[in-house]
Structure formats: C-alpha cells, structure tokens
C-alpha cells in the first residue's frame, strides 16, 4: 500500500492547499485532506497541521482548534509514535494541545511579519531533520503575528539537553543576530520537536518555498530529506 500524507483542514486554515500542493504535485506523494471533524487517521503516514487562522485566532492562536474533534485522534496518533508536522498556525495548535512545550507570544514588535528569512538546522535527531546537516541553511518565508516563541528558562534547558531545538532564525551567513531573530523568540527558536522526536512544530513555511516563481525552492530539499527519512516518498 502506498504511503499517504494527511493535511488537516480547520475552519480558517489557509495554508492547507499550499501544503497539499507541495506534497502532492511537487513531492509526488499521495496526499489527502482531513476535515477537522474527522476522527479516523488510519492509513496516514505523515500528518500535517497546516498554517492559517483556525477559528479566527480567537482567544489565542490555536487555542480553539485544540478542541476540534480530530485533535483526540491526533493525540492518539502522537502516542503511537507516528509523525506530525505543524507549520505556523499548526505549530501554535500543537503547543496549545500540549503536544509540544512552550507557548507563542505576539511578535516582540507587535507587527505581523511576512517575508523570507533564513533558518539554520540545529538538530538532526528526529526523522524530520535526520537527513539534513547541522548548520544547513534554508531560505523560507514566515508569515505570522504570534510567533514569538516562549518557554521558561528551565524548560529551555531541558529542550537543549534533549536536543529538541530543530531550527533557529539566522541571517544569510548563518549567524544568529538580534536582527535575524525578528520576532523576539526565546533563543531565536524557529522550530522544535517533542521529547520522542515524532512531532515537529515550526513557524516558517517550507511548503511555500517549492517553486522558483515564488522566490525560493529550498522547501524541495527540505521535504525530500524529510519524506526520505520517514520512508514516505
């Protein structure tokens, strides 16, 4: 049976089609949409929680989506050790669902930031980044108002000890500067994994960096590596 990627659609998701297009038409992986009221994740080999503004970001980004019916199935799916990738609002939802540690504050300068940035691979311990090299750079878009990642100091220490920091924001040279950490995230964090390494949350959008007409194709080697490691494509 061929491997299958599922993309969850919440009311207010708006990168669901980007993720679907990137996986199905560019990575040539079998991909299907999953409605937030679905509860069956059987046969899904990689679950993508896409970006957008689920439930209008009411209360806090991701806070309401956590109570969507599909999220119970997602909790079980994660417990089974199966892989979940959350991008942008998907990352926020996974934080609110306690599937990843920490929380998202408004960007330090309170502005919605939409631009291309560089991220640096910090860890290769999970299958999501296992085929990449530490220090490898990707040019990918960000598009968020609440991406200022926050965790208490001892929580950060635990994550560092367990090698859970997957990506940091950096400049074109791969250096972490005050300017490159445009949203004020603790330790310039752009993406993290859970303790078991089967959940990755990241604010940048590699699925929007798949075609040169859109400014960057760095998403292709990124997903090539990920799908290879996960034995999906």
């Amino acid at each position: 049976m061929s491997k299958k990627i599922g993309v969850i659609v919440f009311p207010g998701s708006n990168c669901d089609h980007d993720a679907y297009h990137a996986m199905k038409h560019i990575m040539n992986a079998e991909t299907k949409f999953l409605w937030h009221k679905d509860s069956d994740l059987a046969g899904i080999d990689l679950l993508i929680v896409p970006g957008g503004f689920s439930y209008g970001d009411y209360l806090r980004s991701g806070a309401i989506a956590r109570f969507s019916p599909i999220m119970n199935a997602v909790q079980d799916y994660v417990k089974q050790g199966r892989p979940v990738l959350g991008i942008c609002n998907g990352f926020q939802i996974l934080l609110e669902a306690n599937l990843l540690p920490g929380a998202m504050l408004h960007n330090e300068k309170l502005r919605f930031v939409c631009k291309n940035v560089h991220i640096r691979v910090e860890s290769t311990r999970s299958p999501f980044t296992g085929g990449l090299e530490k220090g490898q750079l990707f040019n990918v878009p960000v598009s968020h108002g609440e991406g200022n990642y926050f965790i208490e100091e001892d929580g950060l220490k635990k994550m560092e000890d367990r090698d859970q920091i997957a990506f940091r924001y950096c400049n074109e040279q791969g250096e972490i500067t005050e300017e490159s950490n445009f949203n004020g995230s603790v330790s310039a964090i752009a993406g993290i994994t859970n303790e078991d390494g089967n959940v990755l949350g990241m604010m940048p959008h590699p699925e929007r960096a798949m075609e040169s007409i859109l400014g960057s194709t760095d998403g292709i080697p990124f997903f090539n590596s990920m799908l290879n490691e996960l034995e999906i494509a």
Binding site: A103, F150, E152
Partner: peptide, 8 residues
Amino acid sequence: QLLANEVM
C-alpha cells in the same frame, strides 16, 4: 483549561 495559557 482554555481561557488562559499558564505557560505565559
């Protein structure tokens, strides 16, 4: 459980 996020 919902209204506040005690992490922040």
